[in-house]
C-alpha cells in the first residue's frame, strides 16, 4: 500500500507547528497504525531526519497512552478501539492520511504528536479515590453485598483508560465523559458514597480550572470512546453535582 501522510510536526511546546507531508510505501493491511509510524520513523532516521514523536506504551488497547487524531477522528476511522488497535486495512492504496495531536488547551502539545494529558491526573487527584483506613479492621470489599446492576455499571465506568479521546472528539473540548466515569465508578459503590459529595464538587472544580469546555451533549465522546463509556455517566455526574451543590 502506498500512502501520503500529512503529519503535524512541532519542535517543542513553544514552537509553531505545521503539517508536513511524507510519502510512504510498502505498508501491509495487517500492520497496526503505530507499526506504520515505526516504519516511517526508521526511514526518517536512515535519512538523518528527526523521527516523528508520538505516544505509545502497551500497544494492546489497555493503557490509553496512544492518542492521535487520524483523518478528523480520535483513534481513526474504526470505532471502539485505540490507535494501537487500528489496522492499516482500514485505509486504501493511494489514501492521504492526516495525523494530528489531540487538540485542547488543557492538552498542550509537547512535541509533534505528543500531548500533555496531566490535567487528567490532576482531576483524579482532586477526588478520584476513596480513603480507606487500613489499620486492621477494614472490611474486605468482596464481603460487602452490592446490587448486580450497580456493580456492572460501576465496572463499566471503571474501564475508562483516560486516553482523552472524549476531549479530542468533542467540539467543545469537554472532559465530562472522563470525569463522569471516574465519579460514577465510586458513586455507585458503598465504599465511594462516603466521600461522594466532596468528590464530585472537587473533580468538577478541577476540570473547570484546567480549561476544558462545557458539554453540550453532542454525544461525540461516547461514539469515539475506545471503551464505550456511556453518556449515562454524564447524566449521573450532573445529578451527583446538583445534589452535592444543594447539600454544600
Amino acid at each position: 500500500m502506498k500512502l501520503t501522510l500529512k503529519i503535524w510536526r512541532q519542535k517543542n511546546a513553544d514552537a509553531k507547528g505545521q503539517i508536513v507531508e511524507y510519502p510512504i510505501d510498502g505498508i501491509e493491511g495487517d500492520m497496526s497504525f503505530l507499526e506504520m509510524l515505526d516504519i516511517l520513523n526508521e526511514d526518517l532516521i536512515t535519512k538523518g531526519e528527526e523521527p516523528v514523536a508520538f505516544d505509545h506504551d502497551c500497544r494492546e488497547g489497555i493503557c490509553g497512552m496512544c492518542s492521535l487524531h487520524i483523518n478528523g477522528e480520535p483513534h481513526g476511522p474504526d470505532k471502539g478501539i485505540t490507535t494501537c488497535q487500528l489496522h492499516m486495512r482500514m485505509f486504501k492504496d493511494g489514501d492521504t492520511i492526516f495525523i494530528e495531536p489531540f487538540r485542547a488547551n488543557a492538552f498542550p502539545v509537547i512535541k509533534d504528536l505528543v500531548v500533555d494529558r496531566s490535567s487528567f491526573d490532576r482531576i483524579q487527584h482532586a477526588g478520584g479515590f476513596i480513603s480507606v483506613n487500613t489499620s486492621g479492621n477494614t472490611i474486605d470489599a468482596n464481603a460487602i453485598p452490592i446490587n448486580k446492576h450497580d456493580a456492572d455499571e460501576a465496572f463499566e465506568a471503571a474501564t475508562c483508560i483516560g486516553c482523552g479521546a472524549c476531549v479530542a472528539s468533542c467540539k467543545n473540548s469537554s472532559a465530562m465523559l472522563f470525569v463522569s466515569a471516574k465519579v460514577s465508578q465510586f458513586a455507585l459503590l458503598p465504599q465511594g458514597k462516603i466521600e461522594a459529595t466532596e468528590r464530585v464538587l472537587n473533580m468538577v472544580k478541577q476540570m473547570d480550572e484546567e480549561g476544558f469546555g462545557n458539554c453540550t451533549n453532542t454525544g461525540a465522546c461516547e461514539v469515539e470512546c475506545p471503551k464505550g463509556i456511556s453518556l449515562e455517566n454524564i447524566a449521573r455526574m450532573n445529578r451527583e453535582y446538583l445534589s452535592a451543590s444543594l447539600k454544600g
Partner: peptide
C-alpha cells in the same frame, strides 16, 4: 467552548 481549543484541527470529521 471556542476558547477551550485555540488551535483547531486541520482535518475535523
Amino acid at each position: 467552548n471556542r476558547n477551550a481549543r485555540k488551535i483547531a484541527y486541520v482535518k475535523y470529521n
